[in-house]
Structure formats: C-alpha cells, structure tokens
Amino acid sequence: MTTLGGQVKPKVRLGDLVFSRAASVAGIGILITLAAVAVFLFIQALPALNPEADFSGKAENPISYVTPYVFGTLYGSIIALAIATPLAIGIALYISHYANRRFSQILGYIMDLLAAIPSVVYGLWGIMVLAPFLNPTYLWLNENLGWIPLFAGQVSATGRTMLTVGIVLAIMVLPIMAALIREVFLQTPRLHEEAALALGATRWEMIKMAVLPFGRPGIISSMMLGLGRALGETMAVALVLSPASIINFALLTSQNSNTIAANIALHFPESGGDYRSLLIASGLMLFLITMLINMLARYIISRRAEFSGAN
C-alpha cells in the first residue's frame, strides 16, 4: 500500500461514495421526472396529432382548437400579473419597511395562510361574492369608457368576465408574490439602508436606492412564480369565467377566451378517445408555455444579476 513518489491520494471512503452517489441520483431523478412528464403527456397526446384523428365534431384540427385557449391563458395571466405585481411590491414594502415588527409578523403569518387556500375556494368566493360586487362598476366602465375597446361590448349581467378572472388570479398569486418579495426586501443589507438614511435620504429615497435595486431579481422571480401559478390555475377560472372558444380582447363581456387549464377541467371528465388526446395535447402545450416563460424569466434574472450592485 505504499506508493513511492506517487501523489497522495485522498482516501475514498465507502460512506462518502454511497452518499454522493445517492445525492447525484436524486438530482438526476428530478431530470428524469421532468422528462417523464413530457414523454408521457406526449405519448397520450400523439393520437390527436394524427391528421385522421376523429374529434367527433368538437374540433377541426389541434391548432385551431388550442389557439383561443392559449390566448385566454396568456391574456388572463397578464391581466393578473399587471394587477398583482405593483400590489405585491406595495405589500412587501409595507410589511418589511413600514409596519412595526409585531404587526408585520402577524401579517406574514396571514400571508402564508392565504397562500395555501385551495383554488376551488377562491373560485367559490369569486363567483358568489366578487363577481356580483364588481358588476355595477363594470356597467359604469362600459357606459363611460366604452370607447376603449377593452371595455366595449355587451356587459355580462353576472360579472363573470375576463377582468374578474384577472382580479381573482391576482388575489390568488398575491400572497406568494408578496411573501417572496418581502423575504428579498428583508435581506437588503442593513448597511446600505443605513448609509442611505445617514446621507439624509427620505424613506422612499432609501428604498429607491438600496432596497429596490437589491430586490429586483427577487421581484422578477416572484413575477415568474406568480405567472406560473396564474397560467396553470384551473379551478378558480373554471368556476368564475363564462367561457367561449374565441379570441376576445374585451374585458367585460360574457364571451371570454377560456384558459387551457380550465378547458381541460371542464371537458376531461366527459371525454374519450381522440378528443381526450387532444385535451392532453393542450395540456402539453400549457406545459411548454410555462417552461418557455420560466426559461425567459431565468434569462432575465441572470442578465440583471450582473448589473445589480447587490451580492
């Protein structure tokens, strides 16, 4: 066992070997799982991509079938994000830099709790409480701002519109987004904040100079998380939205583009054969969209991280 003149090799212990292998296997397991999701969905979706597939009159071809739902999915999520992002930043700032410590702890707890409310409950609340509440406002918007195409058209009598869905989705993603942004804001180096204040900055100037630049990647990743949840949100949309398979930008009418996820939930239980495959294909589509958006978000974060002075 003596190697003369050789390098001193570190002793490879069995425990180390087993443990590191186990860890790598777990890591690879993640990759396998993800690949399996794509592969199994693809296998089940394949029959629908056959040009001779029979959708029993429910769809002409996969592309024209899924297009309105892709639009609806993106549209609803973008509305939700447009509403939720400023609010989430506001809440996070309020909790991290405005409210006192005790109060902010309670708020943090409430946020955690709300993040876990099942989407079906948001759906019930959306259709029974929120939609009737918003409807008068919609009528007002349509009467006075109807010249804006978004508010044009025949207003739904029930309030179950794209805008309501956007608001419900925004409320749903708010707790998660706010919690994440809050975490990042709280990690702002104390020294940066105090330095800014010492220079005579007002609280807002301190936030602008120290907190926001530091938190920007956090804000973007929270948007990504929020978007991911909004894109895939199923039950709340299925319950609240009055759907149709058309592309419609109007926010207040009965005819709203349905989302992929809600469309699957509505039709999957009563589907069979090629039509079921078509629904699974639309699920695969949703999967690819969320994946693309995730990649884009990561790309943005990695680019921004280089320029932000933090870390």
């Binding site: 939609a131 409807n135 029930t158 309030g159 009055s242």
Partner: peptide
Amino acid sequence: EGGNATSGVIAAIAAG
C-alpha cells in the same frame, strides 16, 4: 354566458 355544470348555470342566473 357559460356556466360550469348545473350549479354553475344556477349561480350565473342568480348573479345577474
């Protein structure tokens, strides 16, 4: 306007 399942239709009628 569309409603999901019978209860969705009922809820929609009731809401408007």
